[in-house]
């Protein structure tokens, strides 16, 4: 199957800062990829390059198109939600739906209205009269009604309460995602999307520091609650990260067989957030 996104030697500099530093990656179809990194790591720059919103150096193909020169064709097959505030505030829900219906060849009004009916959004309502949660629901209703092959989400749930965040991802998984579609999402709320991701990309200072499928993580990373008397032995195995916990030391190992680590103490598979902290700290 052809890749949805293929980047080779992708770079982008703002003055002296290298927002993207010669990164290469491939995203196959039917995946949900989390692009995770601290502020200023280059997440948004990467998304902008993929969406054809910013010039870049290197090679980039999105759905087979060059996002820079074939932006309009690309936008017929890509959807994009940035953090809550990009819907124009003056527009009414009904006008917005009308507009998208006339501009987008792959939009289904029926699907959009069906989704809106499950919310408290009245079609006559203006965006500026809506709560943040409603604005995201409206945007999601539009995006879910577009038959796109790639959905890009940039901090889509920023500023939402936990109930709205949960229902956002639930709707995305239950009503939108299928094997034909690919979702690329950035967020700070790593724990909340951990269970829906199929792949994870960690980005730091414009470079990818981890590019792995979620399935491969347990085999590769292990967290050990090291017994105090085994600490020296554990340090010799070069943990990625050490963390003191109730007088015990929690260490995170990359690529050390779990059987070996079991001798040092209690082992478990680290969460994505632990992994994130460990890998980012290591590089700092």
């Amino acid at each position: 199957m052809t890749a949805i996104i293929q980047a080779r030697g992708l770079s982008k500099a703002y003055g002296a800062t290298r927002a993207l530093d010669n990164v290469s990656f491939t995203i196959p179809p039917g995946r949900i990829v989390g692009l995770i990194g601290p502020n200023g790591a280059g997440k948004t720059t990467a998304l902008k390059a993929i969406l054809g919103l910013t010039p870049y150096q290197g090679e980039l193909k999105v759905l087979g198109y060059n996002p820079h020169s074939e932006r309009q064709r690309l936008m017929k097959e890509v959807c994009f939600i940035a953090d809550t505030a990009i819907l124009p505030r003056w527009i009414r829900a009904r006008e917005l739906i009308d507009f998208v219906e006339h501009v987008h060849p792959n939009f289904s009004r029926g699907k959009c209205m069906a989704f809106l009916e499950r919310t408290r959004i009245d079609p006559a309502m203006k965006v500026k009269a809506m709560s943040k949660g409603m604005v995201v629901q409206l945007h999601l209703a539009i995006v879910m009604a577009i038959d796109a092959r790639l959905l890009v989400l940039d901090e889509p749930t920023l500023g939402l309460d936990i109930l709205h965040r949960k229902s956002f991802y639930e709707a995305l998984l239950n009503d939108y995602f299928d094997q034909e579609k690919t979702i690329l999402v950035t967020t700070h709320q790593v724990e909340e999307i951990e269970h829906i991701l199929s792949d994870v990309l960690f980005i730091q200072d414009g470079r990818f520091v981890l590019d792995a499928t979620m399935d491969s993580l347990p085999a590769r990373f292990t967290e050990v609650l090291v017994n105090p008397d085994r600490r020296e032995q554990a340090l010799a195995l070069k943990p990625l990260h050490e963390n003191s916990l109730f007088g015990k030391s929690a260490m995170l190992f990359d690529g050390v067989p779990r059987e070996r680590l079991a001798e040092l103490g209690e082992t478990r598979t680290p969460g994505l957030a632990d992994l994130f902290v460990a890998i980012m700290k290591e590089k700092h």
Binding site: L53, M75, F80, A85, P88, R89, V100, V103, P105
Partner: peptide, 16 residues
Amino acid sequence: ERKDRSILFWKSLPAT
């Protein structure tokens, strides 16, 4: 449209 960032929404649609 740049100030209120709605340009990002307009640009997410296939209108040149």
